[in-house]
């Protein structure tokens, strides 16, 4: 179609220009976000020197790693049951529940979780955040694993059993290594989804368990400081690296059996 090519350029410029502005001004020497006054890493130095930011970063990493681990393990077990096990009663309900956090608006899940913790009087700081994150990380971990398992020929597992491997060893030596690209992809997605989450964390986290996005939000609310640009850029960089890596991993996995 004529004009679509040109429009695609506009599309990508629209998609990236705001991000480029953010990144460029995070290296600006001055405070302004309109005037370029020279390259500097000052704001990064400031941001990383800021104790609150350090604490928020540590919190974010703790939550992201633990939620990733828990979600990946739960998702792997669920995927094995749904993609490999015998059909069971309630299988569809189970699958829908697993994927529901993807479709329900975050704010709804957020207030439901907050209400739940408050009704139980559960005030465990970061642990509450970890629980909430695990819930919505599960579908992100599940989907790549399930996709991988469904592309895995079941006769490979039959062959392993046929060649004298018991159920566990067939899983260990054949199913697990072959499912690994899916598991890694799922874990990566769970990690960045947890790292980047804001709405649910905002509602669930207490003062001591602020994560990086929540801290950024607070700073934006108080008025902009170039420090925000620096922290935001750093967060963006982490996500981008993981996604690019994930993208190539899943693409190369797709081309292999």
């Amino acid at each position: 179609m004529p004009g679509f090519g040109a429009w695609t350029w506009v599309f990508y410029i629209f998609l990236y220009l705001p991000l480029v502005i953010l990144v460029v001004f995070s290296f600006n020497a001055g405070r302004s976000a309109t005037v370029w006054s020279g390259f500097s890493l000052d704001w990064y130095a400031r941001a990383f020197g800021n104790e609150s930011i350090q604490r928020a970063t540590v919190n974010s990493l703790i939550v992201a790693f633990s939620a990733m681990t828990a979600a990946t393990v739960l998702a792997l077990l669920a995927a094995l049951a749904l993609m490999r096990g015998r059909r069971f009663r309630g299988g569809t309900v189970f699958r829908v529940t697993l994927l529901a956090p993807l479709m329900i608006p975050e704010i709804v899940t957020a207030v439901a979780t907050l209400t739940f913790f408050s009704a139980l009087g559960m005030q465990l700081g970061l642990f509450n955040v970890f629980i909430a994150h695990t819930v919505f990380c599960i579908p992100f971990a599940y989907l790549p694993i399930a996709a991988r398992l469904s592309n895995l020929d079941e006769s490979l597992e039959c062959a392993a059993r046929d060649l004298y491997a018991g159920a566990w060893r067939a899983f260990r030596r054949v199913t697990l290594p072959l499912a690994m690209p899916g598991i890694a992809a799922g874990a990566m997605l769970a990690f960045i989804i947890s790292l980047d989450d804001f709405v649910i964390t905002l509602m669930v986290a207490d003062a001591g368990s602020t994560t990086l996005p929540v801290y950024i939000f607070g700073m934006v609310r108080m008025g902009t400081s170039p420090e925000i640009n620096a922290v935001s850029t750093a967060l963006l960089a982490v996500t981008t690296v993981i996604i690019v890596f994930h993208y190539y991993l899943s693409n190369s996995a797709k081309n292999r059996p």
Partner: peptide, 22 residues
């Protein structure tokens, strides 16, 4: 081209909104 859409797809919503504040 697809990767170039995938990156913002996953990028932090808060940060991407904040760009417009700038």
């Amino acid at each position: 081209l697809l990767l170039l859409i995938t990156v913002p797809f996953w990028a932090n919503l808060l940060v991407r909104t904040y760009c417009w504040v700038l």
